[in-house]
Design a protein around this nucleic acid. Structure first.
Length: 306
DNA sequence: GAACGTGTCATCTCTTAAGG
DNA sequence: CCTTAAGAGATGACACGTTC
């Protein structure tokens, strides 16, 4: 085994490993790479033999990544993400920006206006949107699974380049048959003992309300913790009151929104990218657009108001 | 001496076929 | 569905000759 073989990774082999790691199938990986399946097998095996490390567990029930495989997949994801950006740079025609931009967002609501304007300005950039709670999107950003993140907290992370988008009031909403349905607002204390549907942990909306509830020793009866869309359906089914960022509340005949009159919990939203990647063209273009759209004055509602 | 073109050889990558 | 083996084609490294 030569020194070079240990010091310089064979990209063809790494590419095959990356495809297998993502698909957890040699056959699907081969289809993805437009090569024969035996080739993929050979490449991955060569990688394992060169470095004397097992990357996959071959079980009768299918493939599974080993710990080393998981670690390598994370790095490979970063490498091939940068490769995509390199291709984007090479393909760029003059000042026209092209390529792929993967955006992770805490919800579709904040980001749609931004994406609409981004598309109008850079029509050759293909945008892929991923959604989830802030913690999920934050981790995807760190793992290079998304290029840009629209998240609900700044994480105080020096690796991030952040632009604040806005502050968003957190409101309560109930079923139209609920005793509160005819009201415009409630007091925080009224939530004490109230049956409620909470967002899952990791949600900044949940955290914003939970902090104020704890400060004022208000203890609602939390029936369940579910994802955003499931909150709406649970409330619509009459299971209890839900909470939502005001900008995310979608008019629904079954539901009635209520402000919290005496306290105004709020969430924030930020556009974020990794500092090491902020010069990559589609990312730079998106952050530039965001900075142009955000007004320096204190923001009350949403990016839609910008 | 530098740049370029050509030929040779080793290595890599791929495919097909066969088998577990 | 995955692995292995055999063989074909592509590619890269290197040496050598030619031209300016």
């Amino acid at each position: 085994m030569s020194v070079n073989k240990l010091h310089f990774v064979n990209f063809s082999q790494l590419r095959s490993f990356y495809a297998v790691g993502r698909e957890l199938s040699f056959t699907k990986a081969a289809d993805l790479l437009c090569i024969g399946q035996p080739t993929v097998t050979t490449q991955v095996k060569a990688l394992e033999e060169t470095y004397e490390v097992q990357l996959f567990l071959r079980t009768p029930r299918g493939l599974k990544l080993t710990d080393a495989g998981e670690a390598l997949l994370t790095v490979a994801r970063q490498i091939f993400s940068l490769e995509e950006q390199a291709v984007g740079i090479l393909r760029a025609e003059g000042n026209q920006i092209s390529g792929r931009l993967r955006v992770g967002s805490v919800g579709p609501f904040f980001v749609m206006e931004l994406l609409s304007q981004f598309h109008a300005r850079y029509p050759l950039v293909q945008v892929f949107l991923d959604s989830g709670n802030s913690d999920l999107i934050y981790n995807k950003l760190l793992n290079y699974e998304v290029d840009l993140a629209i998240i609900g907290r700044d994480y105080d992370d020096p690796r991030l380049d952040l632009i604040q988008l806005g502050r968003h009031e957190v409101i309560v909403f109930v079923h139209r048959e609920h005793p509160w349905a005819g009201r415009q607002q409630i007091d925080l204390a009224e939530l004490d003992g109230q049956r409620m549907i909470f967002r899952e942990s990791g949600s900044v909306t949940r955290q914003a309300l939970a902090e104020i509830l704890a400060q004022h020793r208000v203890r609602p009866n939390v029936l369940m913790e579910v994802p955003r869309d499931a909150v709406r359906e649970a409330v619509a089914a009459g299971l209890g009151a839900g909470i939502v960022s005001k900008t995310e509340f979608q008019p629904d005949e079954r539901l009635r929104p209520l402000r919290i009159a005496d306290h105004k919990p709020f969430t924030e939203s930020f556009a974020a990218c990794l500092k090491g990647r902020q010069e990559l063209r589609p990312i730079k273009a998106f952050m530039k657009l965001v900075s142009e759209l955000v007004t320096p004055a204190p923001v009350q509602e949403s990016v839609a108001d910008l």
